[in-house]
């Protein structure tokens, strides 16, 4: 299967400080890839690098490759990117309020995007806007088009953002923490909507999130990021069931579940994510890893496919929660 989005050795720096350090992944048409990590892992920078939306201090370094449907986006001019953005790939954000213009009505904002990308007339784009709003589950869209963003709830605003994003029928939707700012009962609605639209439009989704629950609900594949690198990548259900990297395992274990006993402390990962200036020389997780050996601190592990369809960047990957004893550099089984 040819991939829709193919990212190779993506490196991004802010003011000369590298924050993304060689990210590789593929996203296939109509599939969802979950990009999981904590703050400072580089997951959002990855999304912004792909979209070409880094602020002026950020720069994708030479040698990086971002291919969308075979077209190289890294190094493309702002004008070239504008051709791609919105039409073939679109993005939604955590806080929809800051992406919507408070002085225009919702209808105007959706219609404007439609007119820009599809070249429809004023009237036709207006009709299309109503249709799009209906598609994203906004009731009475004919009435809603005349409302302003502040008159809508958080969930409604996110729906409007989704309507704008899908207006040109993009092949790729990048969703950066789209449910984090929403209440749990609304989160479920938005996730269900994204899934429904994906099937209808055959759209690939790159889902950026810190929430493993969200990932396991919506993603086909998952890439876990830590300190600017992907450290584990496999099918979502496999990652959730058999995490091989100690960090993935720690992350999964630290999510509280209903019915846990208060007399047993919650599993947690000691310490905190190192900032880019303090990235250790060897494995970047070694300082927080209970299984780390002296060798781990010396040589950075490579992201290797150790099981079919399961890559992990750890010299002692876990099998059923137990580290493999020998630093195995070759493929196991």
């Amino acid at each position: 299967m040819t991939s829709l989005l193919s990212v190779r050795d993506l490196r991004t720096a802010f003011n000369g400080q590298t924050v993304l350090d060689g990210v590789d992944f593929d996203l296939h048409p109509g599939k969802t890839l979950g990009l999981v990590g904590e703050s400072g892992s580089g997951k959002s920078v990855t999304a912004l690098s792909v979209m070409g939306l880094l602020d002026r201090n950020g720069k994708v370094l030479p040698g990086s490759s971002i291919k969308l449907e075979g077209q190289e986006l890294a190094g493309l001019s702002e004008r070239g990117l504008r051709e791609v953005r919105g039409k073939r790939m679109a993005m939604i954000f955590q806080e929809p309020m800051s992406s919507l213009n408070p002085v225009y009505t919702v209808g105007d904002q959706v219609a404007e995007t439609v007119r820009k990308h599809l070249g429809l007339s004023r009237r036709a784009s207006r009709e299309r806007a109503v249709e799009l709003l209906r598609m994203v589950g906004i009731s009475a869209p004919e009435r809603r088009v005349t409302e302003y963003p502040h008159q809508l709830s958080g969930g409604m605003r996110q729906r409007v953002m989704i309507a704008i994003a899908i207006s040109a029928d993009p092949a790729l939707l990048i969703a950066d923490e789209p449910t984090t700012a929403l209440d749990v009962t609304i989160q479920g609605q938005i996730l269900a909507l994204l899934k429904e639209l994906q099937e209808r439009l055959n759209m690939a989704i790159l889902m950026i999130t810190h929430d493993l629950g969200v990932v396991s609900q919506i993603a086909d594949d998952v890439a876990v990021m830590y300190a600017g690198q992907i450290i584990e990548r496999t099918e979502a259900q496999r990652l959730v069931g058999n995490p091989a990297h100690p960090y993935s395992r720690g992350l999964l274990a630290s999510v509280p579940r209903l019915g846990m006993d208060r007399n047993v402390p919650l599993p947690s990962i000691p310490g905190s994510v190192p900032s880019p200036a303090d990235w250790p020389a060897g494995c970047r997780f070694a300082d927080r890893c209970e299984f780390a050996t002296p060798q781990c601190r010396e040589k950075p592990p490579l992201l290797i496919e150790r099981w079919p369809g399961h890559e992990v960047a750890c010299d002692h990957p876990l099998v059923d929660g137990v580290p493999t004893p020998e630093p195995a550099r070759e493929v196991v089984s």
């Binding site: 989160q187 479920g188 269900a192 899934k195 929430d211 629950g213 999510v255």
Partner: peptide
């Protein structure tokens, strides 16, 4: 509604 790890299908969301 609480997202739960390992659950593939979202619960019927509250309307």
């Amino acid at each position: 509604a609480a997202p739960e790890i390992g659950r593939t299908e979202a619960a019927a969301p509250l309307a």
